[in-house]
């Protein structure tokens, strides 16, 4: 091990890795927000609660049914997505004719309900979720010890993000989605069932959030408030990146995580606000966001 700028390499790279992990969550969550916003034109304030639900469902599957991490990684996003689909059909779909801000208020209310109910039931102290055996331990990379699970989180997030990018940008299904984002009426006039696409897209965005939640469960303790503050940072990430570009959202998410990690090393006092400071600068220099199209 060695030192960089007087900082032990383990400390530097350790923080960078933590930053990258936060960045993974920013990337997945802002990607979900962007996909939902593109088609539904609402900002899904419930996103943080759905991330938390992903972690909770994983914990419940383990605690009540003995279903482990790997199954939870698939089951929890599916189950949470089902609740999302119900939410969209029952409530959100009634707001499409109204101002977009009503969608924000509705999903904010739903987030309060979900968080409140779980807080009543489980308190706020948080429940541990242990790292699956296959991913426990650490590797010595020479310049740092890499906890295997943390490496896995970064890799899994990247794979899911790039997979999402591929589906949206390179497949026929993605072409429908992009077309409906641009002009839903015309896509409907081609005989395509746009309302069903909207519902499934919402479900998919929610599943992304829940997937991030399962990944997060072994790192942070599982608690009802875990998504509440995170979602606000993700909003800032979305403002910085702009919601026009999928790759842009992914790059912004990981990049800001790294910046946050670096700040923790060199000026820890500012680490919790650095993203907001960057947002302020971006608003001054490029209000539409780094990858946004000026409207």
């Amino acid at each position: 091990m060695f030192e960089i700028f007087g900082i032990p390499s383990q400390a530097l790279f350790g923080q960078l890795l933590l930053g990258l992990i936060n960045g993974s969550f920013y990337a997945i969550l802002s990607l979900g927000l962007a996909v939902i916003f593109g088609l539904l034109n609402i900002i899904n304030f419930t996103h943080g609660a759905q991330y938390m639900l992903g972690a909770f469902v994983a914990w419940m599957l383990l605690t009540y049914f003995g279903i482990g991490y790997w199954w939870a990684l698939i089951l929890a996003p599916v189950l949470v997505a089902v609740t999302g689909v119900i939410l969209e059909r029952l409530l959100i779909s009634r707001l499409y004719q109204l101002d977009h801000l009503y969608g924000l208020l509705l999903t904010f209310g739903v987030a309060l309900i979900v968080q409140g109910v779980l807080r009543n039931h489980y308190g706020i102290s948080g429940m541990p979720y242990s790292i699956p055996e296959e991913l426990s331990g650490a590797m010595n990379l020479g310049f740092m010890f890499l906890p295997v699970y943390r490496g896995w989180v970064v890799v899994a997030s990247l794979v899911v993000c790039l997979g999402t990018w591929f589906v949206i940008e390179k497949t026929r299904l993605g072409a429908y989605l992009r077309a409906a984002t641009e002009n839903p009426a015309l896509v409907g006039a081609f005989g395509i069932n746009v309302p069903r696409m909207i519902t499934l897209t919402y479900g998919f965005g929610v599943a992304l959030a829940a997937f991030a939640g399962v990944l997060a469960a072994p790192i942070y303790s599982v608690n009802p408030n875990m998504g509440a503050d995170l979602i606000i940072v993700v909003f800032a990430v979305v403002v910085i990146g702009g919601m026009g570009s999928i790759l842009g959202a992914i790059a912004t998410g990981f990049g800001l995580g790294l910046v946050e990690g670096l700040t923790k090393v060199f000026y820890p006092e500012a680490s919790s606000v650095v993203i907001f400071v960057i947002m302020a600068i971006v608003l001054l220099v490029k209000p539409a966001g780094l990858f946004g199209r000026a409207s």
Partner: peptide, 11 residues
């Protein structure tokens, strides 16, 4: 529950 009720009022 206050939070839950406030959320419900929002909805």
């Amino acid at each position: 529950w206050v939070t839950v009720i406030q959320g419900a009022i929002f909805v």
